[in-house]
Every structure is written in structure tokens, then in C-alpha cells.
Design a protein around this nucleic acid. Structure first.
Length: 293
DNA sequence: GCCGGTCAAGGTCTT
DNA sequence: AAGACCTTGACCGGC
């Protein structure tokens, strides 16, 4: 069974990513905005339930400045009940949620300060999911980080940093190939070394290829081994025809997806679609391929 | 008031 | 040294 989902916001509903300028920061404003965002998230999941969509990525902006030093972390206690409630809803309906720190969270940075920032950010993302009460199959997905002109050393540092993470954070982590630095082959190698699941991003793999000669199904199968007893997840998107290389398209290209799907049909897989039109691409592919969940 | 254009946090890589 | 990358919404200037 192949299940598809979408990322971050629903274009038909109020956003769960509301924020404000850091110059206007106050604890009260942070808590109000965060509470509103959590309720907006609940409404998005409700919409998803009505449309039988059970795969969703929660925005990193759910708690404004959630991992910034300006934020005391009081939201972890103040909003415990609201996070728990939305998590109960997700669990009750068999939903799988995830989070994805941005490209600026760099775990393998040689800069100690940036490393500490990354640790805070991973703690933030893990805390949201933990307070929701969802287990470690609901992942926090990160990229490998930078190369710093020395890939072997940067990779070694990445491995070391992952292994030294607090276990509750490490056990929720998955690694994803990016389009500039860590390709699929390198990410898979790190995943095996540190025993973490790997998220294969189909589009990044097209922009920054590896595994020459291997078909998508083979590569997905190799990544699948890293998931052990958990359900495998991959990312899928297309190149925007106008914007720069690596930019996501507005919507999923039906022909491209059909060609891709022909090679993976029959697998057990969660596929996150990354497009500007969000939920619309999920509904579009469902119409095109009714057997998709 | 509304509209459209610009900026924001975060760090790395490329030009 | 400066711009690109990414993201959506906040914010600001001009009507």
C-alpha cells in the first residue's frame, strides 16, 4: 500500500505557521500565536480526516521562535494540554505526522555556536512531537549539513554528532539526501553507520545524483532496509519549469509521477509530496491513481 | 484601509 | 563581498 501526504499548510484553511517579527517578541504574544497555530493544526488534521489523508508534515513555525534563545521554552508547560489534545486526535485516526527543520539547521557545523543552535532546534522539534504524545515513528527529518571543503571529515563529524545526541532525540531522527552536499549514497552510508532510517528524496536525487545505473525502485529498496520494522517514508517533488534548479514546482507533474509510480507500485511506502499547491496535489493524484491511499 | 513589494531567522555554498 | 537558496507571512510605503 502506498500512502501520500503533504507538507506544512493547507491552502484552503487558516495557516498554522503564523508568526511575527522578533523585534515585536513578547512571551504573551508567542503563547497566543502558538496556541492559535495549534488550533489551526487541529483544523487541518480535521480536514485531512474528511479527505482520508493521514500523512502530514507539521510546520516548524508552529511555536514562533520555538528554538530561538529569546524563547524561554515556557510553551512546553503552558501549551502541554493543547499539544496533547491535537496529538490524541492524530493518533485516534491513524495519522502519521512529521517535522523537518530547515536548511539552516546544521548538525555537523565546525562552528560550536551553530552546532549548539542545531541541538536546540532538534530538541524543539522533538519536544513538539513528544508533547503531542506521538511515538518515534513520527519523525524529525534532517539533512546531513555542510561539506566545508573536506567531505570525509565533515561526514565523520556528522556521525559523531548523531551518536552523541540524547537518545530520545536520536531515536526520532531520520536523515534525508539533499540537492547540494550529501547525496543519496552518502546519506545511506551514514544511516547504516548510526542505525538511523533514511528518507530518500526523489527530486534531490535527480538534482544531485548518485548510485549510477540504479533504478529508483532499487535505491528505494536499499533505503527501505534502514527503516527496519518501521514504515518507510520518501519525499517526492518535481523541478519548477521556470524557477532555479532545485526549486519545487507549483503542482505535481502527473506524467512524471505516473512514470515514477510504475516503478514502485506494490511497495509499502509513505510518500510526502512537496509542492506549492499542498493538499491539491494529493487530491489530484488520488483522482489519477485511485489505488493511492 | 488596501495593495503590492520587501524583509525575516537560520548557515553554507557559489559567483 | 555579495547573492542564492527556502518559506510564508509580517510589515511598510504608497495610494
Amino acid at each position: 500500500m502506498i500512502r501520500i501526504g503533504y507538507v506544512g499548510v493547507n491552502t484552503l484553511l487558516p495557516s498554522a505557521s503564523r508568526t511575527f517579527r522578533i523585534a515585536n517578541y513578547s512571551e504573551q504574544r508567542m503563547l497566543e500565536t502558538a496556541s492559535n497555530n495549534i488550533h489551526a493544526l487541529r483544523d487541518i488534521l480535521g480536514w485531512n480526516l474528511e479527505h482520508e489523508i493521514t500523512l502530514f508534515r507539521i510546520t516548524s513555525d508552529l511555536i514562533p521562535y520555538g528554538s530561538h534563545p529569546i524563547n524561554s521554552g515556557v510553551w512546553k508547560t503552558a501549551l502541554r494540554g493543547e499539544l496533547s489534545a491535537v496529538g490524541r486526535f492524530a493518533k485516534a485516526h491513524g495519522m502519521r505526522v512529521s517535522m523537518h527543520p530547515g536548511q539552516y539547521t546544521v548538525l555537523n557545523s565546525p562552528n560550536e555556536s551553530f552546532y549548539q543552535n542545531a541541538l536546540r532546534d532538534l530538541d524543539y522539534h522533538n519536544s513538539v512531537l513528544t508533547l503531542m504524545g506521538v511515538d518515534r515513528s513520527h519523525k524529525v527529518i534532517v539533512h546531513g549539513g555542510g561539506a566545508y571543503g573536506d567531505k570525509p571529515e565533515s561526514t565523520r563529524r556528522l556521525v559523531e554528532r548523531i551518536l552523541s545526541l540524547p537518545s530520545e532525540i536520536r531515536e526520532r531522527l531520520a536523515l534525508e539526501n539533499d540537492e547540494r552536499v550529501f547525496n543519496a549514497e552518502e546519506v545511506l552510508s551514514v544511516c547504516k553507520q548510526v542505525r538511523l532510517p533514511g528518507v530518500f528524496d526523489v527530486f534531490h536525487h535527480e538534482v544531485l545524483p548518485s548510485f549510477p545505473g540504479k533504478q529508483a525502485r532499487e535505491t528505494i529498496a536499499m533505503f527501505g532496509e534502514t527503516w527496519r520494522s518501521e514504515r518507510q517514508k520518501i519525499h517526492y517533488s518535481n523541478q519548477d519549469p521556470i524557477r532555479s534548479k532545485g526549486a519545487h514546482s507549483d503542482t505535481i507533474d502527473e506524467q512524471a509521477f505516473c512514470d515514477f509510480y510504475a516503478g514502485i507500485r506494490g511497495l509499502d511506502l509513505d510518500i510526502m509530496l512537496e509542492t506549492k499547491d499542498k493538499q491539491a496535489s494529493v487530491l489530484k493524484l488520488r483522482r489519477l491513481i485511485p489505488e493511492l491511499e
